[in-house]
Design a protein around this nucleic acid. Structure first.
Length: 588
DNA sequence: ACTGCCTGCCC
DNA sequence: ATTCTGC
DNA sequence: GCAGAATGGGCAGGCAGT
């Protein structure tokens, strides 16, 4: 199969917004794909080269792709960057530059190289992924540049986007499953069957091959397998206990929401694997946990929990940032001692060869409690069934006091099986955003901006925001912010900010980050976030709490309010943010 | 040997 | 992670 | 409400340049 066929379908998908029409396009593509080619085609549609749990990475992103585009189109890298600023998409830059180059060369030898096949492209991507060691960065760039030279401008667009992990077709797993159901399952009725097969195995190319060669029956026969990660059930968010109990039907099981890393452990004879929320195999990060889980869970099982960092001295729970120290390739005895972790288990998906995902929530929890022999490193998530708003509030306060983020509230009763791969209101997270003594939001000064990508091409994508340091009369950066901005906001902001545009950093602004454009401090954004963290990149209170570190905001977003009533000097101050940071630990 | 840049992946 | 938008 | 695409902070690890 020519890659051009895939690229044409991609282009059609990109231009379509109707989901129905997109599914039709996908259907046609899939029907023209042989079973042998189905895995690469499905993976390319997912923008991947392997399922997540296989751990194959390109280790090539936008910067290296830009170099390859420059090579292939015989253009200087700055020209690539200049086009990127305008187009907001490296794939479009590749198309643009290659078209220009080829138009100018058209008179010369029109030796059209042989067409790229899907296999060629896929094999080249795998080769890029496999390149490591000295000289490998340049080798990756060379491989991609070669591929782009052999590609049409349209093909290059999607090759580049695949490499940068940003396909932007409007096609996700759900749309692909719908199309697979139509193509090989006999109709839309097959979708739930395929969805289930995917959610239980995290292996979309595998599901595609199964249904294409064995029909719907083969897909229906898919089962949970030890060693293959199940796609996790996810929670929606609500902000008040009233809404939550309402959504839950008056009662729910509330569990502490620990601020760590969610994991799924697969334990069986001769097998112990731990997967992350996105199905990455992270077994190597937690050798101690693997051993503790083996001891605590003596039977074949799949359990889910949260791994949380501990203070090695006091044993108290530590913030998420501490856990990140564990995210490494090799975890030796020093790291184990320095960054101990504890697991809080909260679900059971599989036990003694049996799929337990259809069991109601409370049945799974009871089975988990009966199964696990808790120890120092393996415990059960604190849980309480609540039936009243006041009770839920009290439990929430307890959770915060004990160092967790809040609660996950779970529906109980008939029909509350584990909905693998779904985000819904069967589980609801309840957590609090930052709130200081004086305000429950932050008023931050826009000091710079970054050009937008994708749908934000041609306007700003995010802003660099600062607090006001009263003593030094300077503006210190606290965070970038791009979430919460509507299309309307983004449409009018450039005009509003134009009078403040500067060539260089304003002398009263202190920043370590290099943005695309600078502004004289003038506009004030109202922003919320979950909590303040120590930051190596932001200058707010730099060096005050820790050497070489300032403060930043976790999960920042714009509230929609521009404080035109406030001057930059009326923004939240450095001192206030320091006080807020200290306040975070007051109730722990 | 040190440092900065880039990437991947947690949240 | 959170948020916005088109269907 | 779903699905997808925008956007955030921050850590380790690998490579390249010095």
């Amino acid at each position: 199969m020519d890659f051009e066929t895939v690229a044409r379908a991609f282009a059609e998908l990109e231009e379509t917004s109707s989901r129905k029409a997109m599914t039709e396009t996908l259907l046609r593509l899939l029907q023209h794909t042989s079973v042998e080619l189905l895995p690469p085609v499905v993976l390319l549609l997912q923008g991947k080269i392997a399922p997540n749990y296989e751990g194959i990475e390109l280790n090539m992103g936008a910067q290296l792709a830009a170099r390859a585009i420059a090579d292939a189109a015989a253009a200087p890298v700055p020209m690539v960057e200049e086009r990127l600023q305008k187009l907001g998409d490296l794939g479009l830059v590749a198309r643009d530059l290659l078209e220009t180059q080829r138009a100018s060369e058209a008179g010369g030898g029109t030796s059209s190289s042989p067409r790229l096949r899907v296999d060629d492209v896929f094999a080249a991507l795998i080769e890029i992924a496999e390149a490591t060691g000295r000289g490998s960065v340049q080798w990756k760039v060379d491989l991609l540049a070669d591929l782009l030279r052999r590609a049409t401008a349209l093909e290059a667009t999607f090759i580049v986007r695949t490499v940068t992990g940003n396909l932007r077709l409007g096609v996700g797993d759900a749309t692909l499953l719908e199309a697979l159901a139509l193509a090989f399952g006999g109709g839309p009725e097959a979708r739930p069957v395929l969805e289930r097969a995917y959610n239980l195995t995290s292996d979309l190319p595998g599901v595609a091959v199964r249904v294409a060669s064995g029909g719907i029956a083969a897909a229906a026969a898919v089962e949970i397998t030890l060693g293959k990660p199940v796609r996790p059930m996810l929670a929606e968010r609500l902000d008040s206990p009233e809404e939550i109990l309402d959504a839950m039907g008056g009662h729910c099981a509330a569990e502490y929401k620990y601020d760590g890393e969610r994991f799924q452990a697969h334990l069986g004879p001769g097998l112990a694997a731990i997967f992350s929320r996105r199905q990455e195999n992270i077994t190597h990060q937690f050798p101690d946990l693997v051993e503790a889980l083996r001891v605590a869970i003596p039977r074949p099982a799949i359990v889910e929990g949260e791994a949380v960092a501990l203070d090695p001295v006091s044993g108290a729970l530590r913030p998420f940032q501490d856990l990140l120290r564990r995210k490494r390739k090799s975890v030796d005895a020093d790291i184990l001692a320095q960054y101990p972790v504890v697991a809080f288990l909260f679900d059971l998906l599989y036990l003694d060869g049996e799929d337990r995902t259809e069991d109601p929530n409370e049945v799974r929890r009871e089975a988990l409690e009966a199964l696990v022999r808790p120890g120092e490193q393996v415990q059960l998530a604190t849980r309480r069934v609540v039936t009243a708003v006041a009770e839920l509030k009290r439990f929430f306060d307890e959770a915060i006091a004990e160092g967790s983020e809040g609660l996950i509230c779970k529906q109980i009763g008939p029909g509350t099986g584990y909905r693998a791969g779904k985000r819904g209101y069967q589980w609801v997270k309840y957590k609090r955003d930052i709130h200081g003594q004086l305000t429950d939001s932050l008023d931050l000064v826009i000091v710079a901006a970054f050009y937008g990508r994708g749908r934000r091409a041609g306007t700003y994508g995010s802003f660099l925001l600062a607090v006001y340091n009263v003593e030094s009369d300077t503006f210190e950066t606290l965070t970038r912010c791009g979430a919460g901005l509507t299309d309307a906001d983004l449409a009018r902001l450039p005009e509003r900010l134009r009078p403040s545009l500067l060539d260089h950093r304003h002398p009263r602004v202190s920043a370590l980050i290099e943005p695309d454009v600078w502004f004289a401090p003038s506009q004030v954004f109202e922003v919320i976030g979950q909590e303040l963290s120590l930051s190596p990149r932001h200058t707010c209170a730099f060096g005050v709490l820790e050497p070489e570190r300032g403060l930043s905001l976790r999960f920042p977003r714009f509230t929609g309010r521009i404080r035109s009533d406030k001057a930059p000097e009326d923004a939240t101050s450095t001192a206030e943010v320091i006080e807020m940071y200290r306040q975070q630990f007051a109730h722990r």
